[in-house]
Nucleic acid binder design. Structure first.
Length: 157
DNA sequence: GCCAACGTTGGC
DNA sequence: GCCAACGTTGGC
């Protein structure tokens, strides 16, 4: 059995928020539209049951708002083949799909957002890319130690 | 809305 | 393979 790993996934709440995830049937959502190779590779490395920190970006209070879980391993993102979709990729071929997604399942919302400010000022998180200036990666790994720190901040808040 | 940081593209 | 131009991300 694979060891459980931890990730952080960003979403703009105006596009898709943790409340939207909670409201979904089965509280599960295909995390489509990722068009960055590094982020894609991280999704391809995910296993069902991995922990996910749900991060709200590009909003009034950016930060981690709750916990989700990887619901299945990666499969081809269907939006890459849909000419009507904003994430359509004309250069991706069905016999060799370029982009993948995983499905994500709601676990819980934190009582309070663990803001980016809080992440930046908490010892033990300074090595994670999410606190680094100019970081644009939307899917990134979190170490077990970082996971524990952020959960304590979120659940204790 | 601004703009710095970054990834991608394409000319050479 | 270099690198300038371009588009996007995301904090502020």
């Amino acid at each position: 059995m694979a060891e459980r790993r931890y990730w952080l996934m960003k979403s703009e709440p105006s596009e898709f928020s943790i409340e939207d995830l909670q409201a979904r049937p089965g509280q599960t959502e295909p995390w489509d539209g990722v068009r960055n190779y590094q982020a894609r590779n991280f999704m391809r490395a995910m296993q069902a049951g991995d922990g996910v920190l749900f991060y709200h970006s590009n909003c009034e209070l950016p930060g981690v708002v709750g916990v989700a879980e990887v619901a299945c391993t990666a499969y081809p993102d269907p939006t890459q083949f849909d000419p009507g979709d904003k994430h359509f990729d004309p250069r991706s071929r069905p016999e060799d799909p370029r982009w993948s997604l995983v499905e994500v399942k709601f676990v819980r919302r934190f009582p309070r957002t663990v803001s980016l400010d809080a992440l930046r000022s908490t010892p033990g998180l300074e090595d994670n890319p999410v606190v680094r200036r100019g970081n644009r990666l939307s899917v990134l790994p979190v170490s077990p130690a970082e996971w524990d720190i952020i959960l304590a901040l979120g659940d204790g808040g």
